[in-house]
Design a protein around this nucleic acid. Structure first.
Length: 510
DNA sequence: AATGTCGGCAACCGCCCCACG
DNA sequence: TCGTGGGGCGGTTGCCGACAT
């Protein structure tokens, strides 16, 4: 920045309490304190002061160093720019990953996050996160890197592999413990508290997503759609949402938030801090994280959800739900995005079942949706769904991490060939299906096996035009709906259906 | 070349907590 | 117990450069 050359002097009083205190203590009442960018000379004065007197007692800086800065300003300048061992420059991939994990864990606790990132300041992390968040919001991408999600899977699987069944108390907290991170308990506590309020909050989960994802995503059909390398977990999320939603859209029996706006709706929305008109648009854009962020325009996870009028709900902090057929009620449309999942109260019959995937978050939504499809195909699909863990999924998980690290950001990068922004900008769409170009791009890019998909497509061709169109609306990127892409890739829906069906088959087969 | 827009970042602001007298 | 000082923290603002038009 050009602070060294910029000699702006605001010449205003430091109007916080420290400044006023300083005025009394230091150079006298009415001392005019400088604001604005620091000059090199000021830096030298501050450094000299700290070298002589050490850190702390910042209000004395003015007194002993001659700086016309309030103590707080001096402290910030020292902490953020002058103190030794500060690491400057761009964040490394590892740092970015840590930030994401830490943010998933603790929300906007920048200082605490900085404690985990040696040489980085809270301000730096905060700025990074905010800009990154905005960038990803624009791109319609989730805030959290896929490896964080993947880590969740692995943690959950590990727990399950040892006979542990995720439950409401522990299941959601486990996945970051590998790094000594822990999902903010308050998030889940709040959700629990809201169980009596929110009709769609289930008894906390009895089955881990882990039991499903490795199977489904590792299965051959998913190796196509979500290849074993899973090069982009953003896509993983969004694509998941896409093909999940595809299975049910044709039913026209989903339950958008504003359609089931019962007495609890307001409370629900308030609870999640999502009561914003923006959410509709955000939801329509197809990313839960994106939507969450948009809900307040400036995300904050530092608050409890229950009080989070300003809060962002990290995607990872969405509770897992019970995994099962969940009655016979038509599921809500996943294409409404996870925001709707969070927003939407249950349809009445779903409420009767006592649990719902609506609040389950992405993974559980996937679980639910796939299983629902499985139920539709096979009414006896109440088999145990967590009885085994498929090794293909393991492969997918292990191999994915390496690739995500770089490709995730590349994909998120609007300038990237995989970036969504440029495409979306080029093809402004009015979509209500919550899908993005990313889904299709991912599919096209990483499936790498169109032949196989084609064969699957042949097997699971849409049964009706309506279904086909519905599926298309859900599964194709928005751009396809409003452009010639539609024709070009109009069979994508059937592929998705095939994938989804295979997923349910896998589940049922377990 | 001029202008507008956007992103990144430093700095500020206001609130809060804690220690101490 | 209360007031005050010191400091920390999260949110916000505003500047500047890069880029697009």
């Amino acid at each position: 920045m050009s602070q060294m050359t910029n000699e702006i002097n605001y010449n205003v009083h430091c109007n916080d309490q420290t400044g006023s205190q300083l005025n009394d203590e230091g150079n006298g009442v009415g001392m005019v304190l400088k604001k604005g960018p620091w000059t090199a000379a000021e830096d030298v004065l501050l450094v000299n002061y700290v070298q002589k007197h050490g850190e702390g007692n910042w209000n004395a800086v003015q007194k002993y160093s001659g700086l016309s800065r309030c103590g707080k300003s001096c402290r910030l300048r020292w902490a953020n720019h002058l103190r030794p061992n500060l690491k400057k420059g761009a964040f490394t991939a590892e740092e970015e990953r840590m930030i994401a994990e830490l943010h998933a864990k603790m929300g906007n606790k920048w200082a605490r996050m900085a404690a985990h990132l040696h040489g980085r300041t809270d301000n730096e992390i905060k700025n990074y996160w905010n800009t990154r968040m905005k960038r990803r919001q624009r791109a319609g991408l989730p805030l959290y890197p896929p490896e964080v999600l993947l880590q969740a899977f692995q943690e959950r699987k590990h727990g399950q592999g040892t006979g542990e069944i995720s439950n409401g108390d522990g299941g959601h907290h486990d996945f970051l413990k590998k790094n000594n991170y822990e999902i903010h308990d308050a998030i889940f506590d709040s959700l629990k508290e809201n169980q009596g309020i929110l009709p769609f909050l289930p008894d906390l989960p009895a089955i881990s997503a882990n039991s499903f994802l490795p199977n489904c995503l590792g299965s051959p059909p998913y190796c196509n759609f979500l290849p074993s390398t899973l090069p982009n977990h953003d896509h993983f999320q969004e694509s998941t949402m896409s093909f999940i939603g595809s299975s049910e859209l044709n039913s026209n029996e989903f339950y958008p938030f504003d359609r089931i706006k019962d007495n609890n709706s307001d409370k629900i929305s308030e609870s999640f801090g999502l009561y914003s008109p923006l959410d509709r648009g955000a939801s329509s854009h197809g990313s839960i994280c994106y939507s969450h962020s948009l809900s307040n325009g400036n995300s904050s996870t530092s608050k409890l959800i229950s009080e989070a009028a300003k809060s962002e709900l990290p995607s990872l902090q969405i509770p897992e739900t019970e995994f099962g057929c969940w009655g016979t009620s038509p599921p809500p449309p996943l294409n409404e995005s996870l925001d709707v999942f969070i927003h939407s109260p249950q349809p009445p019959n779903a409420l009767d079942s006592g649990s719902s995937p609506l609040n389950s978050g992405l993974l559980d939504a996937l679980l639910y949706q796939a299983n629902t499809l499985g139920c539709s195909k096979n009414n006896s699909s109440d088999k145990s769904l967590n009885s085994s863990i498929a090794t293909p999924g393991d492969r997918a998980e292990s191999s994915a991490l390496n690739m995500y690290e770089t490709e995730w950001e590349d994909y998120a990068d609007p300038l990237s060939p995989f970036g969504a922004t440029s495409i979306l900008n080029e093809h402004p769409v009015v979509s209500t299906n919550g899908n993005s170009w990313d889904d299709w791009e991912l599919f096209q890019t990483f499936s790498g096996n169109n032949e196989r998909l084609q064969s699957v497509d042949q097997v699971w061709a849409p049964k009706s035009g309506n279904q086909s169109m519905s599926l298309l609306n859900l599964t194709l990127p928005d751009v396809l709906i409003t452009s010639d892409w539609h024709e070009l890739y109009s069979d994508h829906d059937s592929m998705n259906q095939a994938v989804m069906t295979e997923a349910s088959d896998d589940i049922s087969g377990q």
